[in-house]
Design a binder for these strands. Sequence first.
DNA 1: CCAAAAGTGTTCTCGGTACACCCATGG
DNA 2: CCATGGGTGTACCGAGAACACTTTTGG
Lengths: 243, 243
Amino acid sequence: MPHPTEPDGDAPTRLAVSTVIFALRPDRSGHPVLWTPLVRRTREPQLGLWALPGGWLPPAEELEAAAARTLRLTTGLAPTYLEQLYTFGEVDRSPGVRVVSVVYWALVQSDEAARATAGPNVRWVPADTLPGLAFDHNRIIEYALWRLRTKVEYSQIAHAFLGETFTLAELREVVEAVLQRPLDPANFRRTMLASGRLRETGERLAGARNRPPKLYRYDSTALAGANPDPTVRTESLRERPAS
Amino acid sequence: MPHPTEPDGDAPTRLAVSTVIFALRPDRSGHPVLWTPLVRRTREPQLGLWALPGGWLPPAEELEAAAARTLRLTTGLAPTYLEQLYTFGEVDRSPGVRVVSVVYWALVQSDEAARATAGPNVRWVPADTLPGLAFDHNRIIEYALWRLRTKVEYSQIAHAFLGETFTLAELREVVEAVLQRPLDPANFRRTMLASGRLRETGERLAGARNRPPKLYRYDSTALAGANPDPTVRTESLRERPAS
DNA sequence: CCAAAAGTGTTCTCGGTACACCCATGG
DNA sequence: CCATGGGTGTACCGAGAACACTTTTGG
Protein backbone atom coordinates (compact mmCIF):
# COMPACT_ATOMS: atom_id res chain seq x y z
CA MET A 1 0.00 0.00 0.00
CA PRO A 2 1.00 3.50 -0.75
CA HIS A 3 3.19 4.61 2.08
CA PRO A 4 5.22 1.59 2.83
CA THR A 5 6.07 0.85 6.37
CA GLU A 6 7.47 -2.58 6.30
CA PRO A 7 5.11 -4.82 8.19
CA ASP A 8 6.06 -6.79 11.21
CA GLY A 9 9.67 -6.84 12.17
CA ASP A 10 10.89 -9.58 14.44
CA ALA A 11 7.91 -9.13 16.81
CA PRO A 12 4.97 -9.34 14.44
CA THR A 13 1.58 -7.87 15.20
CA ARG A 14 -0.92 -10.66 15.72
CA LEU A 15 -4.53 -10.63 14.71
CA ALA A 16 -7.21 -12.16 16.90
CA VAL A 17 -10.99 -12.46 16.72
CA SER A 18 -13.05 -12.46 19.92
CA THR A 19 -16.78 -12.59 20.52
CA VAL A 20 -18.96 -11.15 23.25
CA ILE A 21 -21.90 -13.53 23.62
CA PHE A 22 -25.15 -12.63 25.33
CA ALA A 23 -27.97 -14.87 26.43
CA LEU A 24 -30.78 -14.46 28.93
CA ARG A 25 -31.09 -16.77 31.90
CA PRO A 26 -33.80 -16.62 34.53
CA ASP A 27 -32.73 -15.52 37.98
CA ARG A 28 -34.18 -17.11 41.13
CA SER A 29 -37.42 -15.14 40.78
CA GLY A 30 -37.80 -16.23 37.17
CA HIS A 31 -36.98 -12.90 35.54
CA PRO A 32 -34.45 -13.10 32.72
CA VAL A 33 -31.01 -11.55 33.20
CA LEU A 34 -28.14 -11.09 30.75
CA TRP A 35 -25.38 -13.68 30.99
CA THR A 36 -22.20 -14.09 29.02
CA PRO A 37 -19.79 -17.04 28.66
CA LEU A 38 -16.11 -16.68 29.45
CA VAL A 39 -13.19 -19.02 28.92
CA ARG A 40 -10.25 -19.60 31.25
CA ARG A 41 -6.87 -18.77 29.80
CA THR A 42 -4.73 -21.87 29.61
CA ARG A 43 -1.56 -20.06 28.48
CA GLU A 44 0.55 -17.12 29.39
CA PRO A 45 0.06 -14.23 29.48
CA GLN A 46 -2.72 -13.90 32.03
CA LEU A 47 -2.86 -17.66 32.56
CA GLY A 48 -5.83 -18.66 34.70
CA LEU A 49 -7.78 -15.44 34.23
CA TRP A 50 -11.17 -15.44 32.57
CA ALA A 51 -11.37 -13.95 29.11
CA LEU A 52 -13.56 -13.56 26.05
CA PRO A 53 -13.92 -16.56 23.75
CA GLY A 54 -11.70 -16.10 20.73
CA GLY A 55 -8.47 -17.00 19.05
CA TRP A 56 -6.01 -16.16 16.31
CA LEU A 57 -7.50 -15.58 12.89
CA PRO A 58 -6.80 -18.49 10.55
CA PRO A 59 -5.49 -17.13 7.23
CA ALA A 60 -8.29 -18.69 5.20
CA GLU A 61 -11.24 -17.98 7.48
CA GLU A 62 -13.62 -15.04 7.26
CA LEU A 63 -13.74 -12.76 10.30
CA GLU A 64 -17.42 -13.44 10.91
CA ALA A 65 -16.92 -17.17 10.46
CA ALA A 66 -14.14 -17.12 13.03
CA ALA A 67 -16.45 -15.35 15.46
CA ALA A 68 -19.22 -17.89 14.86
CA ARG A 69 -16.77 -20.75 15.23
CA THR A 70 -15.44 -19.66 18.63
CA LEU A 71 -19.03 -19.06 19.67
CA ARG A 72 -19.89 -22.63 18.76
CA LEU A 73 -16.76 -24.02 20.37
CA THR A 74 -17.45 -22.42 23.72
CA THR A 75 -21.23 -22.72 23.85
CA GLY A 76 -22.13 -25.41 21.33
CA LEU A 77 -24.63 -22.94 19.88
CA ALA A 78 -25.18 -21.00 16.67
CA PRO A 79 -25.77 -17.25 16.97
CA THR A 80 -29.16 -15.79 16.12
CA TYR A 81 -27.49 -12.40 15.75
CA LEU A 82 -23.85 -11.61 14.98
CA GLU A 83 -22.32 -8.22 14.31
CA GLN A 84 -18.87 -6.71 14.35
CA LEU A 85 -18.42 -4.57 17.45
CA TYR A 86 -15.08 -2.78 17.22
CA THR A 87 -11.41 -3.44 16.68
CA PHE A 88 -9.21 -3.00 19.72
CA GLY A 89 -5.54 -2.50 19.04
CA GLU A 90 -3.87 -0.45 21.77
CA VAL A 91 -0.15 -1.15 21.71
CA ASP A 92 -0.03 -2.10 25.38
CA ARG A 93 -3.25 -4.09 25.69
CA SER A 94 -1.40 -7.38 25.82
CA PRO A 95 1.91 -7.55 27.65
CA GLY A 96 4.83 -8.35 25.37
CA VAL A 97 3.13 -8.83 22.02
CA ARG A 98 1.10 -6.47 19.87
CA VAL A 99 -2.34 -7.97 19.47
CA VAL A 100 -5.11 -6.41 17.41
CA SER A 101 -8.49 -7.97 18.18
CA VAL A 102 -11.48 -7.73 15.89
CA VAL A 103 -14.36 -8.17 18.31
CA TYR A 104 -17.84 -9.37 17.40
CA TRP A 105 -20.93 -9.48 19.56
CA ALA A 106 -23.60 -12.13 19.34
CA LEU A 107 -26.97 -13.07 20.71
CA VAL A 108 -28.05 -16.65 21.26
CA GLN A 109 -31.43 -18.08 22.00
CA SER A 110 -32.13 -18.17 25.71
CA ASP A 111 -33.66 -21.61 26.02
CA GLU A 112 -30.84 -23.11 23.98
CA ALA A 113 -28.35 -21.29 26.19
CA ALA A 114 -29.77 -23.20 29.14
CA ARG A 115 -28.41 -26.43 27.68
CA ALA A 116 -25.18 -24.77 26.60
CA THR A 117 -21.86 -26.46 26.96
CA ALA A 118 -19.97 -25.68 30.14
CA GLY A 119 -16.91 -27.13 31.77
CA PRO A 120 -13.95 -26.29 33.93
CA ASN A 121 -12.69 -23.82 31.33
CA VAL A 122 -16.02 -22.31 30.33
CA ARG A 123 -18.10 -20.31 32.76
CA TRP A 124 -21.21 -18.20 32.38
CA VAL A 125 -21.39 -14.99 34.40
CA PRO A 126 -23.98 -12.21 34.74
CA ALA A 127 -22.99 -9.53 32.24
CA ASP A 128 -23.51 -6.73 34.72
CA THR A 129 -21.32 -8.03 37.51
CA LEU A 130 -18.18 -9.22 35.81
CA PRO A 131 -15.12 -10.44 37.65
CA GLY A 132 -11.73 -8.96 36.77
CA LEU A 133 -10.96 -10.28 33.30
CA ALA A 134 -7.80 -10.70 31.26
CA PHE A 135 -6.45 -7.84 29.13
CA ASP A 136 -9.00 -5.11 28.35
CA HIS A 137 -11.90 -7.53 28.20
CA ASN A 138 -13.92 -5.83 30.93
CA ARG A 139 -13.99 -2.67 28.88
CA ILE A 140 -14.89 -4.62 25.74
CA ILE A 141 -17.87 -6.33 27.35
CA GLU A 142 -19.05 -3.04 28.79
CA TYR A 143 -18.94 -1.53 25.33
CA ALA A 144 -20.84 -4.50 23.89
CA LEU A 145 -23.44 -4.10 26.62
CA TRP A 146 -23.78 -0.44 25.75
CA ARG A 147 -24.27 -1.33 22.09
CA LEU A 148 -26.84 -3.99 22.92
CA ARG A 149 -28.83 -1.61 25.12
CA THR A 150 -28.64 1.20 22.61
CA LYS A 151 -29.64 -1.03 19.73
CA VAL A 152 -32.50 -2.76 21.50
CA GLU A 153 -34.18 0.63 21.79
CA TYR A 154 -34.22 1.55 18.12
CA SER A 155 -34.06 -1.78 16.33
CA GLN A 156 -35.72 -5.14 16.49
CA ILE A 157 -32.89 -7.36 17.75
CA ALA A 158 -34.71 -8.45 20.91
CA HIS A 159 -36.41 -11.31 19.06
CA ALA A 160 -32.98 -12.92 18.58
CA PHE A 161 -33.09 -14.06 22.20
CA LEU A 162 -36.33 -15.91 21.57
CA GLY A 163 -37.41 -18.89 19.50
CA GLU A 164 -39.05 -18.91 16.12
CA THR A 165 -42.39 -17.72 17.51
CA PHE A 166 -43.12 -15.71 20.62
CA THR A 167 -45.76 -13.64 22.33
CA LEU A 168 -45.54 -9.91 22.78
CA ALA A 169 -45.26 -10.44 26.52
CA GLU A 170 -42.22 -12.65 26.02
CA LEU A 171 -40.66 -10.08 23.73
CA ARG A 172 -41.35 -7.36 26.25
CA GLU A 173 -39.79 -9.40 29.03
CA VAL A 174 -36.63 -9.64 26.92
CA VAL A 175 -36.47 -5.91 26.32
CA GLU A 176 -37.15 -5.19 29.98
CA ALA A 177 -34.35 -7.53 30.97
CA VAL A 178 -31.90 -5.86 28.62
CA LEU A 179 -32.88 -2.33 29.57
CA GLN A 180 -33.41 -3.19 33.24
CA ARG A 181 -36.56 -1.13 33.28
CA PRO A 182 -40.28 -2.02 33.12
CA LEU A 183 -42.22 -1.08 30.01
CA ASP A 184 -45.88 -0.33 29.56
CA PRO A 185 -47.42 -3.47 28.00
CA ALA A 186 -50.03 -1.55 26.02
CA ASN A 187 -47.56 0.89 24.50
CA PHE A 188 -44.95 -1.79 23.88
CA ARG A 189 -47.48 -3.79 21.92
CA ARG A 190 -48.39 -0.87 19.72
CA THR A 191 -44.80 0.19 19.11
CA MET A 192 -43.79 -3.33 18.08
CA LEU A 193 -46.77 -3.83 15.79
CA ALA A 194 -46.20 -0.39 14.27
CA SER A 195 -42.67 -1.42 13.30
CA GLY A 196 -44.24 -3.67 10.71
CA ARG A 197 -41.70 -6.41 11.33
CA LEU A 198 -43.91 -8.81 13.26
CA ARG A 199 -46.24 -11.27 11.58
CA GLU A 200 -49.05 -13.11 13.30
CA THR A 201 -48.69 -16.86 13.05
CA GLY A 202 -52.41 -17.35 13.50
CA GLU A 203 -51.70 -19.47 16.57
CA ARG A 204 -52.12 -18.67 20.20
CA LEU A 205 -50.28 -19.85 23.25
CA ALA A 206 -52.76 -21.76 25.38
CA GLY A 207 -52.28 -23.29 28.80
CA ALA A 208 -52.00 -20.33 31.14
CA ARG A 209 -55.04 -19.42 33.19
CA ASN A 210 -55.61 -16.20 31.29
CA ARG A 211 -56.58 -15.14 27.82
CA PRO A 212 -54.29 -16.95 25.38
CA PRO A 213 -51.91 -14.51 23.67
CA LYS A 214 -51.22 -14.47 19.95
CA LEU A 215 -47.95 -15.85 18.68
CA TYR A 216 -45.82 -13.75 16.36
CA ARG A 217 -42.89 -14.38 14.10
CA TYR A 218 -40.15 -11.91 13.18
CA ASP A 219 -40.21 -10.90 9.52
CA SER A 220 -36.86 -9.51 8.40
CA THR A 221 -38.04 -8.79 4.88
CA ALA A 222 -40.89 -6.51 5.82
CA LEU A 223 -40.85 -2.75 5.74
CA ALA A 224 -37.17 -1.99 5.36
CA GLY A 225 -37.91 1.73 5.59
CA ALA A 226 -34.73 3.79 5.78
CA ASN A 227 -31.74 1.83 4.52
CA PRO A 228 -30.00 0.10 7.39
CA ASP A 229 -26.39 -0.36 8.33
CA PRO A 230 -24.96 -2.14 5.28
CA THR A 231 -22.48 -4.14 7.35
CA VAL A 232 -25.27 -5.72 9.34
CA ARG A 233 -26.79 -8.71 7.65
CA THR A 234 -30.56 -8.54 7.82
CA GLU A 235 -31.28 -12.16 6.94
CA SER A 236 -31.83 -14.55 9.79
CA LEU A 237 -28.92 -16.58 11.05
CA ARG A 238 -31.24 -19.19 12.51
CA GLU A 239 -31.02 -21.67 9.67
CA ARG A 240 -27.25 -21.77 9.84
CA PRO A 241 -26.38 -25.30 10.95
CA ALA A 242 -24.40 -25.69 14.14
CA SER A 243 -21.92 -28.04 12.48
CA MET B 1 -11.39 -24.74 10.67
CA PRO B 2 -12.95 -26.07 13.79
CA HIS B 3 -9.88 -26.31 15.98
CA PRO B 4 -7.28 -23.77 17.08
CA THR B 5 -5.22 -22.74 14.14
CA GLU B 6 -1.73 -21.52 14.66
CA PRO B 7 -1.43 -17.95 13.53
CA ASP B 8 0.11 -17.08 10.22
CA GLY B 9 1.66 -19.97 8.39
CA ASP B 10 3.89 -19.25 5.45
CA ALA B 11 1.44 -16.70 3.97
CA PRO B 12 0.76 -14.49 6.96
CA THR B 13 -2.31 -12.31 7.24
CA ARG B 14 -1.33 -8.68 6.99
CA LEU B 15 -2.87 -5.82 8.91
CA ALA B 16 -3.47 -2.46 7.28
CA VAL B 17 -5.02 0.82 8.39
CA SER B 18 -6.87 3.00 5.88
CA THR B 19 -8.76 6.26 6.24
CA VAL B 20 -11.74 7.69 4.41
CA ILE B 21 -11.31 11.45 4.49
CA PHE B 22 -14.10 13.92 3.84
CA ALA B 23 -13.94 17.63 3.18
CA LEU B 24 -16.33 20.10 1.61
CA ARG B 25 -15.34 22.00 -1.51
CA PRO B 26 -17.51 24.56 -3.28
CA ASP B 27 -18.81 23.57 -6.69
CA ARG B 28 -19.06 26.09 -9.54
CA SER B 29 -22.17 27.66 -8.07
CA GLY B 30 -20.52 28.08 -4.69
CA HIS B 31 -22.42 25.37 -2.85
CA PRO B 32 -20.25 22.97 -0.84
CA VAL B 33 -19.98 19.34 -1.97
CA LEU B 34 -18.29 16.36 -0.33
CA TRP B 35 -14.85 15.48 -1.65
CA THR B 36 -12.41 12.79 -0.68
CA PRO B 37 -8.69 12.33 -1.41
CA LEU B 38 -7.38 9.18 -3.07
CA VAL B 39 -3.86 7.93 -3.69
CA ARG B 40 -2.56 6.14 -6.73
CA ARG B 41 -1.18 2.66 -6.13
CA THR B 42 2.49 2.51 -6.97
CA ARG B 43 2.82 -1.24 -6.47
CA GLU B 44 1.15 -4.46 -7.39
CA PRO B 45 -1.50 -5.56 -6.91
CA GLN B 46 -3.81 -3.09 -8.60
CA LEU B 47 -0.90 -0.87 -9.62
CA GLY B 48 -2.07 2.44 -11.04
CA LEU B 49 -5.58 2.28 -9.60
CA TRP B 50 -6.80 4.85 -7.13
CA ALA B 51 -7.23 3.72 -3.56
CA LEU B 52 -7.84 4.89 -0.01
CA PRO B 53 -4.92 6.46 1.84
CA GLY B 54 -3.43 3.93 4.20
CA GLY B 55 -0.63 1.51 4.84
CA TRP B 56 0.60 -1.36 6.95
CA LEU B 57 0.27 -0.94 10.69
CA PRO B 58 3.65 -0.32 12.31
CA PRO B 59 4.02 -2.61 15.34
CA ALA B 60 4.48 0.25 17.76
CA GLU B 61 1.85 2.65 16.46
CA GLU B 62 -1.71 3.01 17.73
CA LEU B 63 -4.45 2.34 15.18
CA GLU B 64 -5.85 5.84 15.46
CA ALA B 65 -2.37 7.36 15.22
CA ALA B 66 -1.74 5.39 12.05
CA ALA B 67 -4.98 6.72 10.58
CA ALA B 68 -4.06 10.29 11.52
CA ARG B 69 -0.58 9.85 10.10
CA THR B 70 -1.73 8.66 6.68
CA LEU B 71 -4.25 11.47 6.71
CA ARG B 72 -1.48 13.95 7.28
CA LEU B 73 0.80 12.34 4.71
CA THR B 74 -1.75 12.53 1.94
CA THR B 75 -3.39 15.86 2.73
CA GLY B 76 -0.95 17.71 4.97
CA LEU B 77 -3.85 18.22 7.35
CA ALA B 78 -4.89 17.18 10.84
CA PRO B 79 -8.36 15.72 11.27
CA THR B 80 -11.02 17.62 13.20
CA TYR B 81 -12.91 14.37 13.62
CA LEU B 82 -11.58 10.82 13.52
CA GLU B 83 -13.47 7.63 14.28
CA GLN B 84 -13.06 3.97 13.56
CA LEU B 85 -15.42 2.87 10.80
CA TYR B 86 -15.20 -0.89 10.39
CA THR B 87 -12.72 -3.67 9.86
CA PHE B 88 -12.80 -5.30 6.45
CA GLY B 89 -11.23 -8.70 6.22
CA GLU B 90 -12.83 -10.81 3.49
CA VAL B 91 -10.42 -13.54 2.47
CA ASP B 92 -10.52 -12.58 -1.19
CA ARG B 93 -10.54 -8.79 -0.94
CA SER B 94 -6.92 -8.53 -2.02
CA PRO B 95 -5.63 -10.95 -4.65
CA GLY B 96 -2.95 -13.29 -3.37
CA VAL B 97 -2.51 -12.10 0.19
CA ARG B 98 -4.92 -11.98 3.11
CA VAL B 99 -5.25 -8.37 4.17
CA VAL B 100 -7.35 -7.20 7.09
CA SER B 101 -7.92 -3.44 7.00
CA VAL B 102 -8.99 -1.42 10.00
CA VAL B 103 -10.67 1.56 8.38
CA TYR B 104 -11.13 4.98 9.98
CA TRP B 105 -13.14 7.90 8.70
CA ALA B 106 -12.18 11.50 9.22
CA LEU B 107 -13.41 15.01 8.65
CA VAL B 108 -11.11 17.90 7.86
CA GLN B 109 -11.79 21.59 7.82
CA SER B 110 -13.05 22.72 4.46
CA ASP B 111 -11.02 25.89 4.06
CA GLU B 112 -7.85 24.05 5.02
CA ALA B 113 -8.73 21.34 2.55
CA ALA B 114 -8.61 23.96 -0.17
CA ARG B 115 -4.87 24.32 0.42
CA ALA B 116 -4.37 20.60 0.82
CA THR B 117 -1.43 18.82 -0.65
CA ALA B 118 -1.97 17.33 -4.06
CA GLY B 119 0.31 15.79 -6.63
CA PRO B 120 0.48 13.19 -9.33
CA ASN B 121 -0.27 10.44 -6.82
CA VAL B 122 -2.90 12.25 -4.78
CA ARG B 123 -6.21 13.27 -6.26
CA TRP B 124 -9.41 14.63 -4.76
CA VAL B 125 -12.70 13.37 -6.17
CA PRO B 126 -16.37 14.06 -5.40
CA ALA B 127 -17.45 11.46 -2.87
CA ASP B 128 -20.70 10.73 -4.67
CA THR B 129 -19.26 10.01 -8.11
CA LEU B 130 -16.28 7.80 -7.48
CA PRO B 131 -14.24 6.18 -10.21
CA GLY B 132 -13.56 2.46 -10.01
CA LEU B 133 -11.17 2.02 -7.12
CA ALA B 134 -8.75 -0.68 -6.06
CA PHE B 135 -9.89 -3.63 -3.94
CA ASP B 136 -13.21 -3.10 -2.13
CA HIS B 137 -12.58 0.59 -1.61
CA ASN B 138 -15.72 1.77 -3.41
CA ARG B 139 -17.83 -0.18 -0.99
CA ILE B 140 -15.82 1.16 1.95
CA ILE B 141 -16.28 4.79 0.95
CA GLU B 142 -19.98 4.22 0.37
CA TYR B 143 -20.27 2.82 3.86
CA ALA B 144 -18.37 5.77 5.30
CA LEU B 145 -20.69 8.12 3.45
CA TRP B 146 -23.67 6.32 4.89
CA ARG B 147 -22.22 6.67 8.39
CA LEU B 148 -21.47 10.35 7.87
CA ARG B 149 -25.01 11.04 6.65
CA THR B 150 -26.59 9.01 9.42
CA LYS B 151 -24.47 10.63 12.09
CA VAL B 152 -24.89 14.19 10.91
CA GLU B 153 -28.62 13.83 11.60
CA TYR B 154 -28.43 12.85 15.24
CA SER B 155 -25.11 14.26 16.42
CA GLN B 156 -23.15 17.44 16.18
CA ILE B 157 -20.27 16.46 13.90
CA ALA B 158 -21.11 18.99 11.19
CA HIS B 159 -19.07 21.67 12.97
CA ALA B 160 -15.93 19.62 12.28
CA PHE B 161 -16.01 20.83 8.68
CA LEU B 162 -15.89 24.44 9.85
CA GLY B 163 -13.40 26.65 11.64
CA GLU B 164 -13.28 27.54 15.31
CA THR B 165 -16.26 29.88 15.02
CA PHE B 166 -19.12 29.83 12.56
CA THR B 167 -22.59 31.18 11.94
CA LEU B 168 -25.70 29.08 12.02
CA ALA B 169 -26.14 29.64 8.30
CA GLU B 170 -22.67 28.22 7.65
CA LEU B 171 -23.43 25.23 9.82
CA ARG B 172 -26.70 24.71 8.02
CA GLU B 173 -25.00 24.89 4.64
CA VAL B 174 -22.68 22.10 5.78
CA VAL B 175 -25.52 19.86 6.88
CA GLU B 176 -27.44 20.58 3.69
CA ALA B 177 -24.38 19.65 1.64
CA VAL B 178 -23.94 16.37 3.50
CA LEU B 179 -27.61 15.43 3.38
CA GLN B 180 -28.16 16.87 -0.12
CA ARG B 181 -31.42 18.39 1.00
CA PRO B 182 -32.45 21.93 2.01
CA LEU B 183 -33.33 22.60 5.63
CA ASP B 184 -35.63 25.19 7.16
CA PRO B 185 -33.36 27.92 8.57
CA ALA B 186 -35.69 28.77 11.43
CA ASN B 187 -36.10 25.21 12.62
CA PHE B 188 -32.44 24.41 12.11
CA ARG B 189 -31.49 27.30 14.33
CA ARG B 190 -33.75 26.18 17.14
CA THR B 191 -32.72 22.55 16.92
CA MET B 192 -29.05 23.46 17.09
CA LEU B 193 -29.46 25.87 19.97
CA ALA B 194 -31.62 23.35 21.82
CA SER B 195 -28.78 20.83 21.63
CA GLY B 196 -26.96 22.97 24.18
CA ARG B 197 -23.62 22.40 22.49
CA LEU B 198 -23.24 25.78 20.84
CA ARG B 199 -21.86 28.80 22.65
CA GLU B 200 -22.19 32.37 21.47
CA THR B 201 -18.83 34.06 21.01
CA GLY B 202 -20.36 37.50 21.48
CA GLU B 203 -19.10 38.45 18.02
CA ARG B 204 -20.95 38.86 14.77
CA LEU B 205 -19.89 38.37 11.20
CA ALA B 206 -20.12 41.74 9.48
CA GLY B 207 -19.57 42.59 5.84
CA ALA B 208 -22.54 41.13 4.04
CA ARG B 209 -25.35 43.43 3.01
CA ASN B 210 -27.75 41.93 5.50
CA ARG B 211 -28.19 41.70 9.23
CA PRO B 212 -24.89 40.45 10.68
CA PRO B 213 -25.27 36.94 12.11
CA LYS B 214 -23.93 35.85 15.49
CA LEU B 215 -20.83 33.68 15.63
CA TYR B 216 -20.92 30.46 17.61
CA ARG B 217 -18.37 28.03 18.91
CA TYR B 218 -18.82 24.31 19.46
CA ASP B 219 -18.70 23.30 23.12
CA SER B 220 -17.95 19.62 23.54
CA THR B 221 -18.13 19.75 27.33
CA ALA B 222 -21.69 21.03 27.50
CA LEU B 223 -24.75 18.94 28.18
CA ALA B 224 -23.51 15.42 27.67
CA GLY B 225 -27.01 14.08 28.20
CA ALA B 226 -27.25 10.35 27.51
CA ASN B 227 -23.87 8.68 27.65
CA PRO B 228 -22.33 8.57 24.20
CA ASP B 229 -20.44 5.93 22.27
CA PRO B 230 -17.46 5.24 24.52
CA THR B 231 -15.11 4.58 21.61
CA VAL B 232 -15.67 8.03 20.21
CA ARG B 233 -13.47 10.64 21.75
CA THR B 234 -15.47 13.74 22.60
CA GLU B 235 -12.59 16.14 23.08
CA SER B 236 -11.66 18.30 20.14
CA LEU B 237 -8.87 17.17 17.86
CA ARG B 238 -8.25 20.71 16.66
CA GLU B 239 -5.33 21.47 18.94
CA ARG B 240 -3.46 18.39 17.79
CA PRO B 241 -0.39 19.66 15.95
CA ALA B 242 0.02 18.61 12.35
CA SER B 243 3.59 17.52 12.95
C1' DC C 1 -36.53 52.59 0.75
C1' DC C 2 -35.45 47.94 -0.75
C1' DA C 3 -33.27 43.40 -0.96
C1' DA C 4 -31.58 39.81 1.74
C1' DA C 5 -30.66 37.20 5.28
C1' DA C 6 -31.14 37.00 10.63
C1' DG C 7 -34.07 35.83 13.91
C1' DT C 8 -38.99 35.07 16.38
C1' DG C 9 -43.86 33.27 16.86
C1' DT C 10 -47.46 30.15 16.00
C1' DT C 11 -49.70 26.14 14.50
C1' DC C 12 -49.90 21.35 13.28
C1' DT C 13 -48.64 16.59 13.25
C1' DC C 14 -46.81 12.56 15.02
C1' DG C 15 -44.54 9.31 18.17
C1' DG C 16 -44.16 8.09 22.72
C1' DT C 17 -46.16 7.89 27.52
C1' DA C 18 -49.65 7.41 31.18
C1' DC C 19 -53.45 5.23 32.45
C1' DA C 20 -58.47 3.81 32.35
C1' DC C 21 -60.95 0.17 30.78
C1' DC C 22 -62.87 -4.12 28.42
C1' DC C 23 -61.95 -9.21 26.90
C1' DA C 24 -61.03 -14.18 27.26
C1' DT C 25 -59.45 -17.93 29.61
C1' DG C 26 -58.48 -21.50 33.64
C1' DG C 27 -59.54 -22.70 38.01
C1' DC D 1 -67.49 -15.66 39.17
C1' DC D 2 -63.03 -14.09 39.92
C1' DA D 3 -58.09 -13.52 39.28
C1' DT D 4 -54.81 -12.80 35.62
C1' DG D 5 -52.84 -11.26 31.98
C1' DG D 6 -54.32 -10.03 26.83
C1' DG D 7 -55.72 -6.38 24.30
C1' DT D 8 -58.10 -1.53 23.13
C1' DG D 9 -59.19 3.54 23.77
C1' DT D 10 -57.84 7.96 24.77
C1' DA D 11 -55.76 12.06 26.52
C1' DC D 12 -51.46 14.43 27.08
C1' DC D 13 -46.76 16.05 26.08
C1' DG D 14 -42.67 17.36 23.56
C1' DA D 15 -39.93 17.39 19.34
C1' DG D 16 -39.89 18.50 14.77
C1' DA D 17 -42.02 20.55 10.28
C1' DA D 18 -44.31 24.33 7.86
C1' DC D 19 -44.65 28.89 7.32
C1' DA D 20 -45.96 33.81 8.49
C1' DC D 21 -43.80 37.59 10.26
C1' DT D 22 -40.50 41.08 12.35
C1' DT D 23 -35.56 42.87 12.62
C1' DT D 24 -31.18 44.63 11.04
C1' DT D 25 -27.87 45.49 7.99
C1' DG D 26 -25.62 47.34 3.09
C1' DG D 27 -26.54 49.53 -0.93
